[in-house]
Amino acid sequence: MLTGLISPFRRTSGMARWILVSGLFITGVFIAFALFAPWIAPYDFNQQTVDGVKFDKMAPPDGDHWFGTNDQFYDVLSRVIWGARTAVEVVALSVMFSVVIGVPLGLLSGFVGGWVDRVLVFLMDSLYAMPSLLLAIVFSFLLRGPLGGGIIAAALSLTAIYIPQYYRVVRNTTVSAREATYVEAARAIGAKNGTIMGRYLFGNVIQSVPVIGTLNAADAIGTLAALGFLGLGIQPNEASEWGYDLSRALDDAAAGIWWTTVFPGMAIVLLVTGLTLVGEGLNETVNPALRKRRLRPVQLPPHEPSTYLAEKDDTRFAVGDRETVEKRDER
């Protein structure tokens, strides 16, 4: 299992490896923030007091508050770190949901074909044609009633945007893989359709899913922030969210209070960049069209004395005598 995870990394070289490594590093830092937020962040995301003393409002960065405080008396550094947890949670959930729904749908649609395929293609294309932010807004409105403004609701509204991407990729690879000889061979040994899909097609059509997954994750960070910015995402009392903080801090920026916008903004940009780099790096290794065989420069050793015949040699003997021949074999 572990070697399976490392193998794409081992296959890379040069630029692709550099992209992958830097992306993994940036993403790794944010994931660490998310996992260890309670220990890393100096305060809670909705903490306004310490030992009964209220924080200053919009205080500039200093020793107590490295990133300063904002207009709600929150510590910006803590908000940024807790925000990483929110972002990672939402994005991980939404990618998981869309993979779990999109991949089987694509597999089924591509394998079964016929009207099932046509209906699904039409549905997914309609979803895909909609501007993604608009779609997310609609879904978050719809889900706010039953699920409230929490992480699950946000993740589900993002899920709807990304299902069509997995569906399309998996469906198209399935359509071509369906004609492969090994699928016919599976039929010939008496495999049921379910077995063929699960054991023969699945493993061969999901190869590009990790790439789409990471690229979608990057996109989802942006969309989540946009939702928060519009006040439609996660509600401020539920969790810390960068987009929401940005929208609140917008007015402060005009007054010269830079720390409330710069830090959450930086967090968004960095995480999006990190995930995009991972996605592109993976793409270079997984996608055979982009992958280049690793070539090592060759140095041809000097020619040994030729063993080719001298044509005028009457004895019809080789030019290279036994001595040189034996030398050849010592190397």
Partner: peptide
Amino acid sequence: RELRTDLQMVFQDPHAALNPSMSIETAVGH
């Protein structure tokens, strides 16, 4: 499916007739 315990097939292209993501043990035993 039942019939295929009696009738079997060998294909022209051995590279394509085996599922690339299945080990030989799994493939032959399937």
